[in-house]
């Protein structure tokens, strides 16, 4: 026989809110707790008794976090994930780098670049022809 612990996440740790013997009831209760706005994340842990080893195995069978939380509820490991602000210098460099990449891509696709590319190809072609003509004259 299994038991289901409904747990809520409070002050950085999981706290048992109730114990049920019915999985559907436990999940329903967990969802209701989450709607109650007293917790940011909930989960249901199944306790499975192993008669061979006389121990209980714990298995998380349901987990939900409120929409404003991370999808994991920041609670998979019992700690809340925090967004770390980037240092300003890095942010500035990142912005510059990103802007430079965007400018370069825009330049490659621009008409002046196509004209320059066309001129270089024509120039190389002419140079190749002249070179071949000179070689032919020598022979």
């Amino acid at each position: 026989m299994s038991n289901y612990e409904v747990q809520s996440h409070k002050n950085g740790q999981w706290v048992i809110a109730s114990v049920q013997d019915d999985q559907d009831e436990a999940i329903y209760e967990a969802q209701r707790l989450l709607q109650g706005k007293r917790t940011t994340s909930v989960r249901v842990v199944q306790e499975i008794y192993d008669a061979n080893s006389d121990t209980y195995r714990m298995k998380v069978i349901f987990r939900r976090a409120r929409a404003s939380e991370t999808s994991d509820g920041g609670a998979g490991d019992g700690t809340k994930k925090k967004k770390v602000a980037r240092p300003k210098e890095l942010s500035t460099f990142g912005k510059f780098s990103r802007d430079t990449k965007i400018s370069f891509r825009a330049f490659i696709g621009s008409v002046p670049f196509l004209i320059i590319k066309f001129a270089v190809i024509i120039g190389l072609g002419i140079w190749l022809l002249v070179s071949l003509q000179e070689v032919a004259e020598k022979l």
């Binding site: 048992i16 809110a17 109730s18 114990v19 049920q20 013997d21 019915d22 009831e25």
Partner: peptide
């Protein structure tokens, strides 16, 4: 069990 766990228990 409820006394030991200090939580509500529902069961059948």
């Amino acid at each position: 069990r409820a006394l030991a766990k200090r939580v509500p228990i529902t069961y059948g």
